[in-house]
Simulated scan of single mutants.
Amino acid sequence: MTSISRTAATPSRSAQSRKTDGYSFAFYKLLFMMPTIIVLACVVAGPLIYSFWLSLHEYVITYGLGDLVWLHNYAVILSEDFASVSWTTMKLTAIVVCLEFLIALSLALLLNQSWLKFRELYLTVLMLPILMTPVAVALMFRLMFNPNLGIINWIISVVGIPQQGWFGDPHLALATVVLVDIWTETSLMLIMLYAGLKSLPQDPVEAARIDGANAFQILRHVTLPMLKPVILVTLMIRMITALKSYDLIYMLTQGGPGKVTETISFYAYRLGFRFLDIGQAAAVSFILLTAVIVLTVVLLRVMREN
């Protein structure tokens, strides 16, 4: 009887030991992560909290920190040019994301074909834009689209088309920015979609081929459904970066002509560094941050459901 009770007691001790070891492992794991957590808190959380505190104050650089105004800066921003700037940002985001996705998906499907030769060479050339900084790309395209010295106007004049003021024409400025953005950012979506295609299992494709499905049917009913998680991640990343677009706008158009190409990020820059109103600039930045967080949460929920 005594031996039975001792045998029965042994598992409970081992279970308790495993539980204690689990707590010890979690403690040491948290302990080793603390330096990273502290650094992130100082580098990310600290400036965010300080920026939010500034957005609740009157803060003009020439006069210094003023009174606590709570949400007055947000009310002023929402009552001024923010609607038109937001519309420009959403329009630019929607256009570039849709066009870049279609181009990147088409190129990825082409590169994934088994009959294609020199695939590595084509992929290397297509990856060149992602290796260049946006400032260098913007300077290059500013020279190419220069109304007097640019090669684009020279080419269209040769074929009999009148020369255009690409970045100075209100009807062409946004379209020109879209073209430059497509050339710059399509490579990122391409490499993500191509990597997703290469990781897909080939058994469903072979089974569909044996059943008599053509190439379009395989793409629609087999490849794209399996690629859906990669597509959602790619669209999420590109939409977030497009919403925060600033560098190309700054280098190409400065938000002009007028405010045709002014995005939310450039609007925050204009308030903070031209009008020197740091409080309102911080308020615009937090409105943009809120929009990005909401969009990210929605897309993550869609990904989780799929």
Results as ranks from 00 to 15, higher is better:
148 N>W: 03
266 F>E: 01
145 F>H: 00
210 I>M: 06
76 V>D: 14
294 V>C: 13
294 V>N: 11
204 P>E: 05
192 M>E: 09
118 F>A: 14
281 A>D: 06
173 A>G: 03
306 N>I: 14
203 D>F: 11
177 V>M: 05
237 I>S: 06
81 D>A: 13
124 T>F: 15
126 L>R: 01
93 T>Y: 05
116 L>A: 04
238 R>I: 01
262 E>H: 04
107 L>D: 06
58 E>P: 03
208 A>P: 00
191 I>E: 01
151 I>M: 00
103 I>H: 03
243 L>D: 05
37 I>P: 04
122 Y>N: 10
100 E>G: 13
272 G>T: 00
127 M>Y: 13
85 V>Q: 02
95 I>E: 01
257 P>K: 03
206 E>P: 07
47 P>A: 06
254 Q>D: 07
76 V>K: 11
57 H>W: 08
291 A>R: 02
134 P>I: 06
291 A>E: 04
182 I>S: 00
11 P>Y: 04
144 M>Y: 10
236 M>A: 12
227 L>Y: 03
154 W>D: 14
132 M>E: 13
180 V>Q: 01
172 L>P: 05
206 E>A: 15
218 I>G: 04
213 A>N: 07
86 S>K: 08
139 L>K: 10
161 I>Y: 07
303 M>W: 11
2 T>A: 15
246 Y>M: 01
299 L>G: 07
74 Y>Q: 04
248 L>P: 00
235 L>T: 02
54 L>N: 02
64 G>L: 03
283 A>D: 04
47 P>T: 05
271 L>C: 11
194 Y>V: 12
55 S>V: 00
99 L>F: 14
8 A>N: 12
175 A>N: 12
31 L>Y: 13
241 T>S: 14
